[in-house]
């Protein structure tokens, strides 16, 4: 675009058919790549999340350049300045909220989350008081779900044993504790997604009789009892 015309008219700040077509095609690419990654689960977890967010930002930049033509007007370019500063504030608002509330939840959470945290971090004592976390584990127990049947239906274990859920079926299962709809947490665990080939193991740090079931198919359920050592 030539800058000479820019004196008063806004003529040169606007796109051509060509720039719109380029923008459109690039945007399509930036839509389909992350979509494919998500559907096919080529990468997972935080890597995937980061990748798709990056693609979102790239697409935003593409549309800003090719559709909104930002940064092409006469100088000083106040539009660009205000977009930049607003975007900084947006990042501060979203990032700041996540940072603050996440930190808050980390420090002041419902007891379930605290239990899970203690288990995950293997914190056995706080200020000299026992937290109920097992320092070491003993026997391993396995519950297998195959063709919708739980085997064994009831597991007898001692405190600080481990219990592993194995799913042999193709469908995904979410192991939760308590009665269906009124879930309880066990040792801070609320929900354990178990798929074929991906087992989940918990440490039996709380004593008593517990019921577990598949949240997605509540008929599939079983029991386990934990006795003191």
């Amino acid at each position: 675009m030539n800058k000479k015309q820019s004196h008063h008219g806004p003529q040169n700040e606007h796109g051509t058919v060509q720039s719109y077509v380029i923008g459109f095609v690039l945007s399509l690419i930036c839509t389909f790549i992350p979509y494919y990654l998500v559907v096919e689960k080529i990468v997972t977890g935080n890597t995937l999340l980061a990748t798709i967010v990056v693609f979102g930002f790239v697409q935003m930049l593409i549309q800003i350049v090719f559709f909104l033509h930002l940064g092409r007007g006469p100088k000083p370019n106040w539009n660009l300045f205000f977009f930049g500063s607003t975007f900084t504030i947006v990042l501060a608002v979203v990032g700041g909220s996540i940072f603050i509330i996440h930190n808050l939840n980390y420090h002041m959470t419902p007891s379930d989350k605290i239990k899970k945290l203690l288990n995950d971090e293997n914190i056995q004592q706080i200020g000299g008081a026992d937290t109920g976390v097992c320092g070491q584990t003993y026997e391993s127990h396995i519950v297998t779900i195959k063709d919708g049947i739980v085997e064994p239906l009831q597991t007898e274990a001692k405190r600080c044993d481990t219990l592993t859920f194995v799913n042999e079926d193709e469908v995904e299962r979410e192991i939760t504790f308590g009665e269906h709809e009124d879930h309880e947490a066990y040792a801070g665990e609320i929900e354990l997604p178990v798929t074929r080939g991906r087992n989940k193991t918990i440490t039996l740090s709380e004593e008593g009789l517990y019921r577990f079931h598949d949240h997605l198919d509540p008929d599939i359920s079983g029991y386990f009892t934990v006795q003191s050592k």
Partner: peptide
């Protein structure tokens, strides 16, 4: 001024770093 808003709720329970 845009980056100090949390000082209104220091006592909320966020950690020392925040």
């Amino acid at each position: 001024a845009l980056s100090v808003w949390l000082h209104h709720f220091f006592t909320m329970g966020a950690g020392a770093n925040v």
